Simulated scan of single mutants.
Amino acid sequence: MNLFSNGNWKRRKKRGFRRYLYQILLSNILLILIPISVLGFFWYHMMSQQAKQKFYQQKSIDLNEIASGINQRIKSIMMETATEIGEKRYSTYTYSNDYNTDLSMISKRLSAMTQKYYLIDSVYFYDKTTGKIYNSKTGRYLFSEFYDTKWLNDINHNIYSIQQLPPRLILEDESLFDKYSFLYNKRNNLVLSLVLKGRPDFYLVTNISIKSLYNEIVDSYHLNDNHMEFFILDRDGKLIEGESRYAEWKELIRKPARELDNGVTYIVCNNRIYFMKSVNFNAFSVTSYPFSDSYQEAVYLGKYILLICIGLILFSLIISFYMAKRLYRPINILYSDVAKGTWNSPQEHVTDEIDMLKQVFSEMNTFNSNARLKLKRFDELSKAFNFRSFLEN
């Protein structure tokens, strides 16, 4: 059997070329592709952590602005109440059966406050000496059952500064529902009451509507995203306003929270992140986002890194194929000469071919050395880049 027949020569040629290609591919994978892939993995991990920290930082800033907006709106109404009580009409008011000028002026001023501030549900003028309450909406109540006097039990009667009561229902007596359902539904709102005592012996009560406050914050800060939630909880975990669709209210209060900047805390529950910030009526403003939002930027970065790795693989295949074809050319010529019957050519010709192979392998060694040197420099540059990133962070 002729080992150098046309068929055997072609098979040997293909087998030898595949060996060259395999060795070159293996060299490129070990020297270039694997180190760059490992570096890309660590880079992706570092950038994903930075994206996650940026997400938490931004959401804590957003919630802090929301809580500050709530507190600022309440403070502005506090100042308005403190200014209003200085009106002389209140201190000179005396009750009589006649609808006198002072009472008419007081009713107008109470109504003017509700028109000035959308958040105000109602304003009371309560005369302690007579036990009469005048309301900004209806004047004096038509029914004695609707006198809202429960707030008197929750205040300090000897303090002449503004007292802020926890959120409460104006009318908590459900037995009134059947008797005056039309009025009960209209008046029974959840409010935050600001009470200020005046001289000689009267009280000015400003009731801030929690629902109106919530709606204004939602509109002002554009919190209508379907994936985002915003609601208000009290300290006991009871929902005051808003809607929590993904977690029980009390469950959020019981879970241990982690601290962020500006007094913002967060917890992870039911694959969502809940950010909480206290507001000045002993409650929490809460925002929640899907947990996937925290690493969304890292996902985009990971896609770019994956594309880079795929590009490196294709580039490595093309370069390896070109190198194998170029380096295998002298051996191919030698096999071709032998197959054509020139294998008994002079020894000098064979020696020339062997020298050519030596030169080729010498060039391969030089290429591998250069590749190792470049890889070492690349590793030094990557370490310097990581150290610089560490200092900047």
Rank of each mutant, 00 (worst) to 15 (best):
residue 247 A to E: 06
residue 221 Y to F: 15
residue 287 T to V: 15
residue 7 G to S: 10
residue 383 K to P: 01
residue 163 Q to M: 09
residue 44 Y to H: 05
residue 332 N to M: 11
residue 81 T to R: 02
residue 317 L to C: 10
residue 298 A to Y: 03
residue 313 I to K: 03
residue 364 M to D: 05
residue 374 K to T: 11
residue 53 Q to W: 00
residue 311 G to H: 02
residue 105 M to C: 07
residue 183 L to C: 05
residue 45 H to M: 01
residue 372 R to C: 06
residue 60 S to Y: 02
residue 121 D to R: 02
residue 101 T to F: 12
residue 176 L to F: 07
residue 42 F to A: 03
residue 209 S to C: 07
residue 197 K to Q: 10
residue 227 H to C: 04
residue 126 Y to F: 15
residue 348 E to L: 11
residue 264 V to F: 05
residue 380 E to Y: 08
residue 214 Y to F: 15
residue 10 K to H: 12
residue 172 E to S: 15
residue 218 V to I: 13
residue 322 Y to D: 09
residue 52 K to C: 03
residue 92 T to V: 10
residue 243 E to D: 11
residue 323 M to L: 15
residue 240 I to M: 12
residue 278 S to D: 08
residue 386 N to S: 11
residue 124 Y to P: 06
residue 110 L to V: 09
residue 310 I to T: 12
residue 130 T to K: 12
residue 48 S to P: 00
residue 202 F to S: 06
residue 67 A to S: 15
residue 366 T to M: 10
residue 201 D to N: 15
residue 282 N to M: 07
residue 125 F to A: 07
residue 302 G to Y: 02
residue 207 N to P: 04
residue 32 I to P: 05
residue 168 R to K: 05
residue 245 R to K: 12
residue 116 K to V: 08
residue 362 S to N: 13
residue 373 L to F: 13
residue 265 T to V: 13
residue 48 S to H: 01
residue 236 D to E: 13
residue 126 Y to Q: 01
residue 314 L to H: 01
residue 255 K to P: 00
residue 366 T to C: 06
residue 234 D to I: 04
residue 302 G to H: 02
residue 212 S to R: 09
residue 70 I to C: 05
residue 66 I to S: 00
residue 354 I to V: 13
residue 262 N to T: 05
residue 130 T to L: 08
residue 220 S to W: 02
residue 17 F to D: 01
residue 126 Y to I: 04
residue 209 S to E: 03
residue 80 E to A: 11
residue 282 N to T: 06
residue 165 L to I: 00
residue 309 C to M: 14
residue 71 N to T: 04
residue 177 F to A: 11
residue 246 Y to A: 12
residue 347 Q to C: 10
residue 75 K to A: 13
residue 238 K to T: 10
residue 203 Y to M: 05
residue 64 N to K: 01
residue 222 H to I: 08
residue 94 T to A: 10
residue 61 I to S: 03
residue 23 Q to W: 14
residue 330 P to G: 10
residue 54 K to Y: 01
residue 382 S to F: 09
residue 70 I to S: 06
residue 95 Y to T: 09
residue 110 L to R: 01
residue 38 V to Y: 04
residue 17 F to I: 06
residue 120 I to L: 10
residue 131 G to Q: 07
residue 351 T to P: 02
residue 252 L to D: 01
residue 108 K to W: 09
residue 120 I to S: 02
residue 182 F to N: 14
residue 343 W to H: 14
residue 58 Q to H: 03
residue 148 D to C: 07
residue 42 F to N: 05
residue 2 N to C: 03
residue 109 R to S: 14
residue 221 Y to I: 05
residue 144 S to K: 12
residue 312 L to F: 13
residue 7 G to I: 10
residue 87 E to T: 06
residue 258 R to N: 11
residue 119 L to D: 09
residue 225 D to P: 02
residue 239 L to K: 01
residue 64 N to P: 00
residue 212 S to W: 00
residue 27 S to P: 00
residue 214 Y to I: 04
residue 366 T to V: 13
residue 199 R to E: 15
residue 111 S to F: 12
residue 51 A to F: 08
residue 220 S to V: 09
residue 91 S to N: 01
residue 175 S to K: 06
residue 322 Y to C: 14
residue 32 I to G: 10
residue 173 D to F: 05
residue 28 N to L: 14
residue 43 W to G: 06
residue 177 F to Y: 12
residue 18 R to S: 14
residue 331 I to C: 06
residue 188 N to E: 09
residue 86 G to L: 11
residue 30 L to A: 15
residue 48 S to L: 02
residue 208 I to S: 00
residue 7 G to Y: 04
residue 125 F to M: 04
residue 206 T to D: 08
